[in-house]
Amino acid sequence: MSHIETKAHQLMQEAEKKLSSGGFFRNLFTKSSERIEESIEYYMRAANLFKMSKNWSQAGHAFEDAADQCLRNNNEAEAAINYVEAAVCFKKCDVVKAIDLYTKAIELYQERGKFLMAAKIHQNIAELMEDDYDLNEAIQHYEKAADLFKQECNFSSANKCLVKVAEYAALEKDYDKAINIFQEIACFDLASSLMKYSAKQYLFRAAICLLCTDTDFIPKLQTYIDMYPAFENSREYQLIVTLMESIYKGDEESFTEAIRKFDTSCSLSQWHVTMLLRVKNQRMCNRIDLK
C-alpha cells in the first residue's frame, strides 16, 4: 500500500470517528450538522487521494459515503455531485455500481428541477450501455436524455441523442422507428437556414433503412425530394438510386463498386457500412421488384 493510500485510509477512519458518538460534552457543544460536515470533508479528501492512487473502487466508496452524509445534512445539491463523482470512479471497475449511483444522482437532480443535468447523466449511462453492447438499454437512456433535453429547449443535444436512438433501433431491425426519427431530425434541420444542408445526411440514413424493409420505396424517396429538392442532386441520393438498380438487376458487383466509389469521396461510418452490408445480404438473396 502506498503512502497516499495509507493517508486516505486514515482520513476514512477520521470521517467515521466524526460520525460516532463523541461523548456527552462533545455532543453538548458541537452540532450534529457540524460533525457531519467535517466527516464529509474527510471522505472527500480520502476519495481524491484514492483517485490519485487509481484505487477506483475505494475512491468510489469514499465519494458515495460523502454523498450519503450530504443527504443526512439535507444538502441534495452536494449529494448529487458526489454520487456522480462516485459513479465516474466505478465506471472504471464496476459498471453496475456506477449505474446505480448515476440513477441516484438523476433522482436528486429531477427533484430539484435540474433536468439538464439529469439528461446528461442519462446520456452517460447510455454510453456505458454502448460499451457493454446492451443496445436496448442504451436506446432507453438516450430517449430519456432526449426528452429531458427537449424539456429544457436544448434541441441540438436532444437530436444528437435521437440520432443514436435511430442508429441502434436500425441495428436492432426496428426500421420504422429509425426511419421516423431520421425524418423528424431532417425536418428539424430543414427549418433552419444554417442547418438545412445537413438534412441530406438524415434522409440518406432513412433511405438506407427503407432499403432494408418491404416498403414501397419509390414514393417514399420522392417524398424526400419534395421535402428537400437539393437531395436529388446529392451523392447520397445517387448512391441510393444506383443501389436500387443493382438490386433490381441482381448485380452484386455493381452494388459493391458503387459503395466503394462513394466511400472514396465521402467516407462512410461503421453504421453505414453495417447497414449497407445488411441491405446487400437481404436484397440480393431475396430480390424484390423495385419498379
Rank of each mutant, 00 (worst) to 15 (best):
E5I: 06
A67I: 01
V163G: 01
K280L: 06
Y168Q: 05
D68S: 10
S234T: 03
N286T: 02
P229C: 05
L171F: 12
A170E: 02
K150D: 08
Q140N: 12
N124I: 03
A199M: 09
V163E: 13
K104F: 07
W271F: 15
S246V: 09
D94V: 01
D65F: 13
E152V: 14
A138Y: 07
A207H: 02
Y224H: 06
F255V: 07
L243G: 10
L276M: 10
P229T: 05
I4M: 07
F50I: 04
Q69L: 04
E41V: 02
L243V: 05
N75G: 05
I81D: 04
Q222R: 14
A118G: 15
S57T: 04
M1L: 04
A191I: 09
K196C: 09
C212S: 04
S39M: 01
C266Q: 06
A87K: 11
L194W: 06
I247S: 03
K196Q: 14
A207K: 08
G23N: 08
D134Q: 14
K7Q: 09
K160P: 00
I121H: 11
Q238M: 06
S193Q: 12
S234R: 09
E167S: 11
R72F: 03
S157F: 07
G113A: 12
N286Q: 09
R205F: 03
A207V: 02
D214E: 14
A8E: 03
R260F: 08
K7P: 00
F90V: 07
F204Y: 15
A98S: 15
M44E: 12
Y248W: 09
K91S: 04
L190P: 06
E236N: 05
L190G: 03
K196V: 02
P229E: 04
S267M: 10
L148Y: 15
Q110G: 00
S39H: 03
Q222Y: 04
S20K: 15
Y142E: 02
G113N: 12
K160D: 12
G23L: 05
A258R: 10
E253N: 08
K91H: 11
I139Y: 09
Y224N: 03
F50K: 02
T274R: 13
Q270V: 14
H61Q: 13
I36R: 11
D263T: 06
Q140T: 06
E252S: 13
A186T: 05
